[in-house]
Write a protein that binds this DNA or RNA. Structure first.
Lengths: 92, 92
DNA sequence: TAGATAGTTAGACAAACATCTAAATATCGA
DNA sequence: TCGATATTTAGATGTTTGTCTAACTATCTA
């Protein structure tokens, strides 16, 4: 189930988008200013992130505002946490 | 720099390999028993994980034993941790 | 309602990826 | 050294991905 999330994180542009949204919610246009790719390409990345559940979008007039979905982020962190403390996990 | 790590995690077979190695070190052959893909395909996945620094390998006679490199795993976790506690990060 | 602005959808294309079979390398045991 | 076993490397192939331009949809403003 979290497979889409991991795939979404594989691209550096998408990771950077998440980092920007961590600071503050942004419109698609504001996000676009940070990258050297076309708006359709950025839109495609946003759709990938949305599909993975990592971001949500909401229209405000002409703009569409994107926000981080921390819940899904937490799920991914949960997977990673299984790899910390491996010593204690074993029956030893 | 952690880009290779994230790309390596994008594939479900590779994530499963990491989960298996979390339990115990394995030879390439032992790992292969858990998957329905050819040995060369598995070897390719292992090379990807090795290239990302997520696993290390060591030859023991005829076998090559793979182990998790928890250090690089921790680096990835570090990236995720930046997404927890976002409220406290802001100047508010 | 017409024009401008914000953003997405459609379609094409090259690069990257996962997979396979066949062949090569490395080690062990007789 | 020869044959068997473990694994990787090479080369080919179909699929997925990231990118683009062109066209479309939605909203605002005059």
């Amino acid at each position: 189930m979290p497979g889409e999330g991991f795939k979404a994180l594989a691209d550096p542009t998408r990771r950077r988008i998440l980092e920007l949204l961590r600071e503050d919610n942004c419109t698609a246009g504001e996000l676009a200013e940070h990258f050297d790719i076309s708006k359709p390409s950025l839109s495609h990345h946003l759709a990938t992130l949305k599909n993975a559940g990592l971001v949500t979008d909401e229209r405000h007039g002409q703009n569409i505002v994107y926000s981080l979905n921390t819940t899904v982020m937490q799920d991914l962190i949960g997977w990673f946490m299984g790899f910390t403390n491996t010593e204690g996990d074993k029956d030893e």
